[in-house]
């Protein structure tokens, strides 16, 4: 009788015992804020140019979008392109000649690989913001000697 009473008390309203439902309201709040932020960051064209991970690009007010070109990356220690180290800055920064032989040979090969004559003259330079102009000057001189005359520099857009 006592047990029957207990059973009857549990099912008094004709409903089974309360189902555990986790509170999703706060999670939905977080998701909504995240969604709004990501919609604001959404970009249809994406990023056509990927900056080198170990470089701190300079900040600029320039707004022209980046285009894919042959990229030369200049860090404090080395010059590289396509993931390959071409020359170390210590080896050429005090040299009397502005020409960097290893870079020159590399650029000659790259120029020959381009069928389009216009693209064969364009170079995109990604340089760390603290690199001295001396290094940049030598790289640009070498590229110009190899036939590349149109230069552009990749920068972070100032927000």
């Amino acid at each position: 009788m006592k047990q029957r009473k207990q059973f009857s008390a549990l099912h008094e309203n004709g409903e089974p015992d309360a189902v555990f439902r986790p509170q999703l309201t706060s999670l939905v709040d977080v998701m909504t804020i995240l969604l709004v932020f990501l919609i604001q960051s959404f970009s249809v064209e994406g990023t056509l140019v990927t900056p080198a991970p170990d470089l701190t690009l300079p900040v600029s007010t320039a707004i022209e979008p980046a285009k894919p070109k042959l990229a030369i990356e200049i860090s404090q220690s080395y010059v590289l392109s396509g993931g390959t180290i071409i020359a170390y800055t210590d080896a050429f920064k005090t040299s009397d000649s502005l020409l960097i032989p290893a870079l020159y040979d590399y650029m000659i090969v790259q120029k020959a690989a381009y069928d389009d004559s216009k693209r064969a003259q364009e170079v995109l330079i990604q340089s760390d913001r603290e690199v001295a102009f001396n290094i940049l000057k030598r790289v640009m001189y070498t590229c110009s000697r190899a036939g590349f005359v149109d230069f552009s520099v990749l920068v972070l857009k100032e927000e």
């Binding site: 960051s41 994406g46 920068v155």
Partner: peptide, 18 residues
């Protein structure tokens, strides 16, 4: 999907000549 398409750093270029 939106995380994969989000762009957090905006890049631009400066063209110049010698």
């Amino acid at each position: 999907f939106l995380i994969s398409m989000a762009v957090f750093t905006h890049l631009s270029i400066i063209e110049f000549s010698l």
